[in-house]
């Protein structure tokens, strides 16, 4: 399976994302600069964390207009897996691929530590290797991860079963402790915690590895690749 790791000016988790899908999970990946417009050769799209365009105006607001984003939207429409982590999640929100918006953390602190993360939904292409209700240890590193959506939107998220991850304990003020959501079609996941930083026991936790393994497993089943 071949992944595109999209690199914006100011991305800083692109290397970790690349490392996770290549060294940890054993698949192929390529860095794709944000000015590229052709993503046809890729099977999955990864939007890494960082501070694209210095978070100017609002986090993710400028990156959304990068040339590559039209192709990301197209890949999403084609049903390819699209994963946005941290700033990648913020970009998915700003571009309208996922509902809601991010505010500054409730206590205004930049929160950088490993937190308990609960798997609410294990029947997605990103979480099939987890058990629903399982608690993972995954690092967060964000100043603007306070997820907001209106009550109506929250009802919709619940009804469509789009809430994938919640914080094990209140963390940043997010509505319903939401840490990650999928789109209605189930192939676009945005999450604030960093699974790509938790793929080896050496660095504290390997609970994030199964997220990437889930994506690969789903792709292999769909394309009947046995090797």
């Amino acid at each position: 399976m071949k992944f595109a790791v999209i690199v914006f000016p100011g991305s800083n988790c692109d290397l970790d994302m690349y490392h996770a899908v290549t060294d940890a999970v054993g698949e192929q990946a390529e860095y794709v600069w944000h000015t590229e417009t052709d993503l046809d050769r890729f099977d999955g799209i990864l939007l890494p964390g960082g501070f694209s365009y210095g978070d100017y105006l609002r986090a993710g607001a400028i990156a959304r207009f990068s040339p590559v984003m039209e192709s990301v939207k197209q890949a999403a429409a084609e049903g390819k897996p699209v994963l946005g982590v941290c700033n990648g999640f913020q970009i998915l929100l700003e571009s309208g691929l996922l509902p809601g918006a991010m505010r500054r953390n409730e206590d205004l602190h930049f929160i950088c530590r490993t937190v308990p993360l609960q798997v609410k939904k294990a029947d997605t292409m990103f979480t099939s290797a987890y058990e629903a209700g399982e608690t993972l240890q995954i690092p967060v590193a964000h100043g603007e991860g306070n997820y907001y959506c209106s009550e109506t939107q929250l009802e919709e998220l619940k009804q469509n079963d789009q809430i994938v991850f919640t914080y094990g304990a209140a963390l940043n003020g997010s509505v319903a402790d939401i840490a990650g959501i999928v789109n209605e079609a189930g192939n676009v996941l945005g999450m604030m915690p960093h699974p790509e930083r938790a793929v080896e026991a050496l660095t504290g936790s390997e609970d994030g590895r199964r997220l990437f393994e889930s994506i690969v497993r789903q792709w292999r089943e769909k394309h009947a690749v046995t090797s």
Binding site: A61, F65, L93, A101, R103
Partner: peptide
């Protein structure tokens, strides 16, 4: 389109 985020 850009200056405000209509969600919030």
């Amino acid at each position: 389109k850009l200056l405000a985020n209509p969600v919030i």
